[in-house]
Amino acid sequence: MKLDPPRSFMKEQAFMNLSKKNMSFEDVFNHIVRFMEMDPQGNYRLIVGTDSQVHKFHTIFVTGIVIKREGKGAWACILPVKFPKKFLNLHEKISMETTLTEQVALLFDDERKNELIDIVLPHLYRGSSFSIEGHIDVGLEKRSLSRFLANEMMARIESAGLEPVVKPESFVASGYANRYTKQPKRFLKYE
């Protein structure tokens, strides 16, 4: 069984957040556009990050998408994916998290990125900004078990056109997405 989900698979998945279920990627993108249009002079960070949790017979991967307006709030959603396999090898697990982050980030193609940039572009001289980050659930500290994977995963995220961010700053992967991997029955209807 091939576990690397193609982009068409990613587009067909249901994104969700606390207020809305079963969003298409187009719905997600439209929410992001509306959020940015409310304050086009803001400083925006579009962030994608994935975390996972191994359960008894499967592994849940949750990818978070967050549009953060510095100092003025955020809008966020998740994409949960269940694999009928226990990912016990750390490299394999972190690599799949990175793959899912890359796949979701690739949904923001050049046309969509340009549409988001065009929102803040007229206000750049007033301090507006827009960046895209890929949050990775690895750390660089000596005590981190994943530190030997950090350079590889950072290079992958960078090659996908994202600014790589690792722990402790990778809050979308290690905080937001992580929260939803622990008790998936609270928000998933798959069992």
Rank of each mutant, 00 (worst) to 15 (best):
G161K: 08
A14C: 11
F35W: 12
P5M: 08
G134Y: 01
D27G: 10
N30S: 15
R156S: 06
D110Y: 05
L140A: 14
F25P: 14
N17W: 05
A150R: 10
Y180M: 03
L90F: 01
T98V: 04
R186F: 05
I136P: 05
K2L: 11
L124T: 11
T99Y: 13
S8A: 12
L3A: 00
D4I: 12
I119F: 08
F83A: 04
F130R: 07
K185C: 00
V62H: 02
L18N: 14
T63P: 03
P164S: 09
S19M: 13
M36G: 06
I60K: 02
M16K: 13
M1G: 06
S144A: 14
L107N: 05
R112V: 09
S174F: 02
M36L: 04
E115L: 13
P184K: 01
R45Y: 09
T50A: 04
F148A: 04
R186D: 11
L162P: 07
R147T: 12
K93Q: 12
I32Y: 09
E115I: 10
P122D: 08
L145M: 07
F130H: 04
K56N: 14
P164A: 05
A14V: 00
E97P: 07
E97K: 06
F130W: 08
L106M: 11
S52E: 05
S131N: 10
L106S: 06
S19C: 10
P40W: 12
R156I: 15
R143I: 13
L88Q: 13
F35G: 09
D109M: 01
T63K: 02
P5W: 06
F25A: 09
S131V: 12
Y176I: 03
M1Q: 06
L124G: 08
E115V: 10
K167D: 09
R45G: 04
Q41C: 10
I117P: 00
N89D: 15
L121N: 13
R179K: 14
I117F: 15
T181R: 03
K142P: 00
S95E: 12
L107C: 09
S52F: 07
A173N: 05
G175D: 06
K189G: 12
Q53I: 00
Q41W: 01
D110H: 09
K86I: 13
P5T: 02
A76K: 12
R34M: 11
A155L: 12
Y180C: 02
A160R: 11
D39H: 14
D137C: 05
K2R: 10
I32L: 14
G73K: 04
V62Y: 02
A150C: 12
A105N: 03
S174W: 01
V138G: 01
S174Q: 07
A155I: 10
D137L: 01
G127K: 11
Q53C: 14
Q53M: 14
G71M: 05
I119P: 11
G73R: 03
E133G: 03
H123T: 01
T50S: 09
E158G: 09
Q53T: 07
R156G: 00
K11L: 15
L79I: 01
S19Q: 15
T99G: 00
S144L: 00
K86Q: 15
G49S: 05
L124H: 07
